[in-house]
Structures are given as C-alpha cells and as structure tokens.
C-alpha cells in the first residue's frame, strides 16, 4: 500500500526546481513535460528530466513524468525518455477512453523491451480532463494492470463542460465518477490542483472535502501545500488509538487462526481492518493531526 497524498508538480524545464524538489518530501514528484513547458523548451525539458531521474535522490521517492499526449509530436519522445530513465509512473494527460491507455501500454512495453527494462515495471496513471473521460472513467481505470491510479484535472474539464472553477459544485459529478471508477478498479484517485497560492483557507477547505469524499490525495503546485495536506490527512490521536486496537485484534485473530476477528465483542471485517492500516500508515508518515 503506497501512500499517495501529495503529488508535487515540477516544470520539466526548470533545472533549479528539478535539482532541489526532493527536499520537500512529497509522496510523489511529478516532472511535467506538458503544460508547464513552452513549445520552445519541449526538447530541453525532456532531456533535463531524463538526466534528473538518474539522480540517486530520485531513487528514494516515487517519480512520475507527465508526458505530452501521444497524438502530439512530443508524446512518444517524452515516453522514450521517461521509460528509459527508469521513471516509476508515466502520467498520461487528456485521457478520453480506455483505448488511450491501451495505446500507451503498448508503447511502454515496446520501449521496455527495447531498452532492457523489466516488462511491466513502468506503472501508469491516467488524467481525466473531459466529459468523455469522466463518462468512460471506469473503462479507463480498468484498461491496464499497470495503472496505479486515475486523476481528475480540473482546468480542461471545466472548459469542456462550458463552465469555470468555483466552489467545487462544478466538479462534483466528475469527482464522484472518477472516485467510484478508481475504487471499483481498486486503484488510487487523485484530485485537481489548487492554483490560488495565497488562499490557504480555500485550499484547506477543498482538502477537507476531497478527503471526506475518499480521494487518496491531490496534485500540488507549491511545496508549501505539502505539509498542510499531509496534516489534513493525518488521523487524530483517538483514530490512531482505535486503529491500533483494530490492527492488534486482527493480528491476534490471525495468530489464533480464527476466521472472525472481534474487538470489544463486536465483529470487525476486512474493510475496517484495511482502513485501520491506512490510518496507522498516515500517522507513521506525518504523525497525528495538529
């Protein structure tokens, strides 16, 4: 169970950010070759990310590369660079249907074979940015065993829906659809970026919402948001205490070879135990909520 609360976006052409971003310790770092890179620097960003991924520090953190769509001239060269450099996850933008993921998977496998990388070791995630993508979310989420998650990208989506970002009402259906698809496919779900860096209260309110909905985490554009997000996802002391007892009871049940686990006379089943384990994992990563 990999913890993926925070995914920090880095513009792929920026040498300084690529050289220092690991110090912020997000759960995943995403090197962006798509929207954050101007047309002039598509080639240089690709080569810079390829080299940065070889840094030993990036072996200790989950790395993601957002490539350009495969129907642009940049998509395939981006994919070559990412897979050959040993990236953990390739993020595909503008995923409208399962066939986009299937095409990506075929290309990834071809490159893995060509460069001698273990076939299947490159994981994928798909970003959904359109009405079609939301409608096809389940098919997308189940399109490849390589998928670790799907993400909603708000900016393009609201454009496609002929609306604009507001209090979250405009994203409500899409969030729920993406989340359900991810859960049905047993993969992670990631929420949109919060772009107003000065509105911390707004950010925290949105984080509270998506956490309650059930998202694993969020894409971030500012390292300042990492700690805020991790703290919001951190459990309370009571939650940790209860989860500890659940997990201990489960272990006890397992030790005794019991088919049924009970705590204080009540039966606890699988999903409750899984939830308790996630609570403890978050507490271990960031302590209890402050």
């Amino acid at each position: 169970m990999k913890l993926r609360r925070s995914m920090l976006f880095l513009p792929g052409a920026n040498a300084a950010m690529l050289s220092t971003a690991f110090v912020y310790k997000p759960d995943s770092i995403m090197f962006d070759l798509e929207d954050a890179v101007s047309l002039r620097e598509k080639d240089s960003a690709r080569i810079l990310v390829f080299n940065a991924l070889q840094l030993p520090v990036y072996r200790e953190i989950e790395t993601v590369v957002r490539i350009n769509p495969l129907n642009t001239p940049f998509g395939l060269p981006d994919l070559e660079a990412a897979v050959r450099a040993g990236v953990d996850v390739v993020r595909l933008p503008k995923t409208d249907g399962a066939e986009d993921v299937e095409l990506l998977e075929r290309e990834v496998e071809r490159i893995e074979r060509a460069c001698g990388r273990e076939v299947g070791s490159t994981r994928l995630m798909a970003a959904i940015e359109s009405a079609s993508g939301v409608i096809n979310a389940l098919a997308i989420a189940k399109a490849s065993p390589r998928l670790i998650g799907i993400a909603l990208a708000g900016f393009d989506y609201v454009m496609d829906m002929q609306t604009e970002r507001g209090d979250g009402t405009e994203l409500f259906y899409a969030r729920c659809a993406v989340l359900h698809a991810a859960r049905a496919a047993k993969i992670d779900a990631f929420d949109v970026v919060w772009s107003d860096l000065n509105d911390e209260a707004g950010f925290l309110k949105e984080v509270d919402l998506i956490k309650r909905l059930g998202f694993n985490g969020k894409s971030l554009i500012n390292p300042r948001q990492i700690e805020l997000l991790h703290n919001a996802y951190a459990p309370t002391e009571e939650e940790v205490e209860y989860a500890g007892r659940v997990v201990a009871a489960a272990a006890e049940g397992e030790r005794k070879g019991l088919g049924v686990v009970s705590l204080n006379g009540k039966m606890i089943d699988g999903p409750v135990i899984d939830h308790a384990r996630r609570v403890l994992q978050r507490a271990e990563a960031s302590g209890t909520r402050k």
Partner: peptide, 22 residues
C-alpha cells in the same frame, strides 16, 4: 545532471538531430 542535459540539448539543436540516441 543539469550540465549533461544542457550540453546534450545544445548539441542536438546544433546538430539538427531529429532523433535521439538515448
């Protein structure tokens, strides 16, 4: 790693390379 990347990019551009030998 940045030094290597920038030298590689400048050479690719200066050589008008269309494909990259990774």
């Amino acid at each position: 790693c940045a030094i290597r990347a920038r030298v590689q990019t400048a050479v690719m551009r200066g050589a008008e390379a269309q494909t990259i030998d990774w």
